[in-house]
Nucleic acid binder design. Sequence first.
DNA 1: AAGACTCAGGCCCTTACTTCA
DNA 2: GCTGAAGTAAGGGCCTGAGTC
Length: 194
Amino acid sequence: MSNSSLELTISVPGFSSFDHGVGACAMRNIDMNMVPSNSLEDQDDEEISGGGGPPRKKLRLTKEQSRLLEESFRENHTLNPKQKEALAYQLKLLPRQVEVWFQNRRARTKLKQTEMECEYLKRCFGSLTEENRRLHREVEQLRALRVGPPTVISPNTCQPLPASTLTMCPRCERVTTTTTTTSNASVKPSTLTQ
DNA sequence: AAGACTCAGGCCCTTACTTCA
DNA sequence: GCTGAAGTAAGGGCCTGAGTC
């Protein structure tokens, strides 16, 4: 970014548009859709600036303009009014056009970032699904290895509990006791045997 | 000090146009 | 040459923070 143009600009609060003829805007006579003559490609810009504009004609930025805008965007994703004015002057564009370009550029950046995050989450989902499948298989294999119902020793009587009082916790898939008559019978991992 | 109002700037959604396959 | 998709400049609405009264 050249700061020499900064010295030429006057920031006038409240005059964000071009048609006031004050400050830096007075130095330029820029048409809305004027494309500098050094454009490298598509130059069918007759009647672009025609005043009786029925449908709006779309401006295409030149490669050089795009390059400078990108360069500026790399330094700052937002511009203050002075920077905007200076850049607009340098590019022979309106401050509004620079502003719009930055707005759209920020939106594109955000969109790209969102797409990347989406891809990342998809990959995460895929690997987690695979891990989940693997763990389920492992659980099935471990279940298949069981020879009989687990024997649980009551902490009170030190006698084996009847198998009918045992249930499988659906959440953690651990064996618990149902509270029937022996209400204070709890299962400690150490007392659970296969 | 608090609330109403205004204004500028940003974001989002959309439209209109261009380019390209 | 026609067409649909993708890219993008620009319009308009809404929100928010700062300044003023």
